[in-house]
Design a protein around this nucleic acid. Sequence first.
DNA 1: CTGGATGCAAATGTTTTGCAGCATG
DNA 2: CATGCTGCAAAACATTTGCATCCAG
Lengths: 130, 130
Amino acid sequence: MARPSLIPPAILALMREGQRHAWTLEQVSADLAARAVQANFSSVFRAVERLVGERQLRKVQLPTGAARYELSGAHHDHLHCSGCDALTPVPCLAANLDLAALEQSTGYAMTDHDIVLEGVCPRCRQHAVS
Amino acid sequence: MARPSLIPPAILALMREGQRHAWTLEQVSADLAARAVQANFSSVFRAVERLVGERQLRKVQLPTGAARYELSGAHHDHLHCSGCDALTPVPCLAANLDLAALEQSTGYAMTDHDIVLEGVCPRCRQHAVS
DNA sequence: CTGGATGCAAATGTTTTGCAGCATG
DNA sequence: CATGCTGCAAAACATTTGCATCCAG
């Protein structure tokens, strides 16, 4: 190994202490910069990809098509606010699904899931004309 | 209204008779061409968007970030094969989730969902070294 | 030295928009 | 003729890659 990478650990640190629950690449990049960690966008991209590969991060696809990254930790699912784009973690929803039955009926071998339900968060409900 | 649009109805027809369950924009475009329906990609895009707006079509986000379109019809969810990119419809999974309880605990107003579970389809399981 | 890490620029792939032209009601 | 559909081209966007360079082991 040559030239040990500073970026991946910095990303993990940032996320562990972070205010956010999930980050876009853009946000990871910005937060690194805010911590004076020099990192080109490509490097951030590659670091995040690697971390996802190592299962230290999880990539979450929003219904909008945009992706977010979060610490792996305990598996959970998400609610996505169509108003403000917030992503709120909720306990794993697949626990309530009978995956075994699904595998039976479809022949699929389930490997993963990433359930994102669409809704309007409390704040946006308030601001909406009621 | 001027110049009634041929494209949206052609898309609906194509999907009603189609072999496929869900289409990428690219595929819609190709299938239109195969039926000798002249349509620029932009026009296909706009037509599909309109149909989604009118709730005649549904847009499904795959875990890969790619989008697919399908006829609205009865709501259902999907299994996505990570091997061959197939999208298999399954009965609505959210039926098994206690959405009311979720709304209670999170304050969200749930508006929609689009559950895509990741797995390996029967065919790909076969072809995999076992 | 060497191999991985990095920055920069540019390719990619897809979705989206501006605009001028055109065909119908 | 006005309206909104259409094609074409190009913008916008986010993601991804090529390549030359750099550096700690």
